[in-house]
Design a protein around this nucleic acid. Structure first.
Length: 244
DNA sequence: TCCAATGTTTCGCC
DNA sequence: GGGCGAAACATTGG
């Protein structure tokens, strides 16, 4: 559930509650639930993997971590609700997630220019950030939420495969053109992920992630924890040979 | 049945 | 203090 595109889908799925007043709050979250009662939702936002409920003078931040989930207008059986919001026209429940209150307006805490799915996404700014840290491996940079906000491990693997770059390449060794391609594809693939996920064909589209054979070379992909982040990379030694 | 995994933060050690 | 590894969270699918 947790990569950026999935959170955009969530945001779109809850629009029936936009502008509605919270009538009751439940769940085992540690936040003070009283402060949400009788408050009106000004909007639902997302910043990468963060799901944000805007109440104007403050906001709620939900992060689903690895296992988090939600349900709309129903309760999941045998599951403890972490945060449940009741509205006149339905309910929204979150499970196994991190919940935080932001004490000021959400726009003061968040900047959307790095969010690969935001209208404010700024590829030129992202490019400058990458150029500041040439020693880092591209697998780490792609997963860095302050540079590629919303990119997760699936998107990382598929984008690097698509542009034929080895995950352990130093970004300083990549040409300006290739870095721009990387930036463009991180956003483009995220939107494709979003479309595929909505029609339940996401995993059918994977070209290297969790694949038995490279879909270009028909040879077995490498599987290795790469970079300082040590997150799993699936890659083809034969065709992802650039900069390595 | 077991284990890994679409993630991030925090703690403790060297 | 930096850097690193492990733990914590706790579900789902292969």
């Amino acid at each position: 559930m947790p990569e950026g595109p999935s959170i955009v889908i969530l945001r779109e799925s809850v629009q029936a509650f936009n502008g509605k007043k919270v009538l009751a709050v439940s769940g085992n979250t540690k936040i003070d639930k009283k402060v949400l009662v009788n408050k009106k939702v000004i909007g639902f936002k997302s910043w990468g993997k963060h799901f944000l409920i805007d109440f104007g003078t403050f906001y709620v931040r939900i992060h689903f971590m690895l296992f988090g989930s939600y349900s709309i207008n129903e309760k999941k059986e045998n599951r403890k609700i972490r945060l449940g919001l009741k509205f006149k026209n339905g309910e929204l429940n979150f499970y196994t997630c991190s919940v935080l209150i932001g004490e000021q307006n959400v726009n003061k805490d968040y900047n959307w220019q790095t969010d690969v799915m935001s209208e404010e996404w700024d590829p030129a700014y992202v490019y400058k950030q990458i150029k500041l840290q040439p020693e880092r491996m591209v697998c780490d940079v792609l997963m860095d939420q302050t540079i590629f906000t919303g990119v997760g491990n699936i998107i990382k693997n598929e984008v690097l495969y698509r542009i034929k770059v080895h995950p352990e390449s130093r970004v300083g060794s990549m040409s300006p053109t290739k870095i721009k391609t990387l930036i463009r594809q991180a956003s483009k693939y995220s939107f494709e992920f979003y479309e595929w996920k909505k029609v339940f064909v996401l995993s059918k589209q994977w070209k290297i992630y969790k694949q038995k054979l490279c879909t270009r070379c028909d040879i077995k992909p490498e599987i290795k924890n790469t970079g300082l982040g040590k997150r799993k990379s699936y890659y083809c030694e034969n065709c992802q040979d650039l900069y390595k």
